[in-house]
Structure formats: structure tokens, C-alpha cells
């Protein structure tokens, strides 16, 4: 029981990270391999503000979000937009964006190694036990989960009930048709990419309250986020959330029953199952 709750709490934060990636891939069509590094940037910001100025990570979210938004918007405009323009097909864009963001991820890791060094970053925030259904859980994990739920919820409502959200969903389904009904696709793609980056960075700030990060852990989170997006279905926020919870629980099961060093192997195991049996995602329809 406590394994499942711990897993769900972890899965909540994963949902946040993967939702960010899903916006970037599903709407802006950028397969962003530097997503995990954006997460680490968010985590490091929270660390620096908490240890340096005593600012609570929950408040940091409001600082991280606009900065990450601006940063990702700039990345899209300067680095990725030229690729979108020169790509002749979706396949070619995918390939070029993979190469570019792969290079970007190493560049960001390099920058963070330079600035912060290679050591681990950990701080103690709300590291008190909290009793839930008769078991003890870290209060920081509960707060992190609640933050993730609120952010995902706001995002979900915004996407489904606002005009801008609807335009974004239209681009996700078909950029061509969206253009025909007067949606400014390049602008919205940049917007979606930036929001995706901001959500991921907030995820990083949240996750740093209970996990240890270092400059080069980003790629692990990129992997997990990618697996979640594939599992839940590209462009499907609801699927992403459910897949994230499944991954959180699965990982916690493997970590507590077999070995905590095998979390990525566990994620991979699930990925292989998905690839073999449901490559269209858990809730996706068979492609026709």
C-alpha cells in the first residue's frame, strides 16, 4: 500500500515533466532531447534560491515559470524555427530536431557543470513525516504532488476551455488545417514550446524538493518523460498523466522490491512492453 502511494506521489511529478514534453512534441513537433536539462535548470534555481535567499520552492515556481518560458521561447525562435522552415517533411524535422536538441542538451549540461560543478545538489525542505492512511510519507513529497496536481489541472482546464487552448489543440491535430482557419501556427508553436519548457522547469523545481539532482541527471528524466509520452499517446494530456502514474508506481515497486538502482531499467521494461504490444499508446487508436 505505501509503495503504491509513494509511487503515485512520484508519478504526479513525472506527469508534470512529461506534460511539458508532450506540449513540445505534440504541438510544436519538436522531439526535445534537452527536456531533462530544462528540468535540472528548474531544480538548480530552486536550490540556489532556497539555500541562498531562503525562498520556498513553492514560491520559486512563480519565478521559474516566466524565466523558463522566455528561455524556451528564445530557444525555439533562434534555434528551432529555422529547422521547421527548412524541413521538407515531418520526418526530416523530427530527425533535425533530435540532432539539434541532443547538441543543446550537451551544451546545457556543459554550462551547468561549468557554473555549478559536478557535485550533487540536495537541500532539506519540509523533510518531516506526514501520516497518510496510517503510513509515514515525506511532507515534501505530498506538497510536490499537490503542486503537480494544481499545475496539471490548470493546464488541462486552460487547454480544454479557453480559446488559446483550443487553438493549441487544433495545431496539435493538424497544423495545415489550423493555418487554414486563421491560426498563426508559427506563433502558437513557439508559445506551446515555451509553455512546455516552463512546465518542465516547474517540474524540476518541484522534484528538487525530494530528489537529489546533479548537472548530468537530465538525460534520465528525458528518457522517462519520453517513455511516458509514448505510453500515454502523443498529444494526449490525460493519457500522459495516467502513464506517468503507472510509471511512478512501477518504478517504486522495482526500487523497493528489487533494487533502487534499477529505476531506469524498470522504465525501459515498461517501454519494451508498450513497443511490443501497444505502440500507438495506452489509449491511442490503432493508426489507420
Amino acid at each position: 500500500m505505501d509503495i503504491i502511494i509513494t509511487g503515485l506521489l512520484l508519478g504526479g511529478t513525472y506527469a508534470l515533466i512529461a506534460t511539458g514534453l508532450n506540449l513540445q512534441y505534440g504541438v510544436a513537433r519538436i522531439m526535445n532531447l534537452a527536456n531533462g536539462e530544462m528540468l535540472v535548470v528548474g531544480g538548480f534555481t530552486a536550490f540556489a534560491l532556497y539555500t541562498g535567499a531562503g525562498i520556498s520552492p513553492v514560491l520559486t515556481l512563480f519565478i521559474v515559470a516566466p524565466i523558463a518560458y522566455a528561455l524556451n521561447w528564445a530557444i525555439y525562435r533562434v534555434m528551432l524555427r529555422p529547422l521547421v522552415k527548412r524541413a521538407k517533411s515531418r520526418g526530416m524535422l523530427e530527425q533535425e530536431s533530435i540532432l539539434t536538441t541532443f547538441g543543446l542538451s550537451f551544451t546545457m549540461v556543459g554550462l551547468m557543470l561549468w557554473i555549478f560543478g559536478g557535485s550533487y545538489f540536495k537541500y532539506s525542505f519540509l523533510a518531516r513525516p506526514f501520516v497518510l492512511f496510517g503510513d509515514n510519507y515525506g511532507l515534501n513529497r505530498i506538497v510536490a504532488f499537490l503542486c503537480a496536481v494544481i499545475i496539471c489541472g490548470v493546464l488541462y482546464l486552460w487547454l480544454n476551455h479557453s480559446r488559446a487552448g483550443m487553438a493549441i489543440r487544433a495545431v496539435a491535430v493538424s497544423p495545415e488545417s489550423a493555418r487554414l482557419v486563421g491560426i498563426d501556427v508559427p506563433k502558437l508553436s513557439a508559445h506551446a514550446f515555451a509553455i512546455g519548457g516552463a512546465v518542465t522547469a516547474m517540474g524540476g523545481a518541484v522534484i528538487s524538493t525530494f530528489l537529489t539532482l546533479d548537472a548530468s541527471t537530465g538525460v534520465i528524466f528525458t528518457m522517462k518523460a519520453l517513455i511516458i509520452v509514448i505510453m500515454g499517446g502523443v498529444g494526449d494530456i490525460r493519457g500522459t498523466i495516467i502513464a506517468a502514474l503507472i510509471l511512478g508506481v512501477g518504478e517504486t515497486l522495482v526500487a523497493s522490491l528489487i533494487n533502487p538502482g534499477l529505476t531506469l531499467a524498470a522504465a525501459y521494461g515498461m517501454f519494451i512492453l508498450i513497443l511490443l504490444f501497444r505502440p500507438q499508446g495506452l489509449f491511442g487508436r490503432k493508426p489507420t
Binding site: 540532432l99 539539434t100 550537451f106 551544451t107 549540461v109
Partner: peptide, 14 residues
């Protein structure tokens, strides 16, 4: 700065 320079070289090539 090896990682950083490696990343930058890669971007330049792409």
C-alpha cells in the same frame, strides 16, 4: 568545459 564545447561544436556542425 569539455562537455560544453562538445555540445557547441555539434550545434555548429548541424
Amino acid at each position: 568545459q569539455t562537455t560544453l564545447l562538445l555540445g557547441l561544436c555539434f550545434l555548429l556542425i548541424v
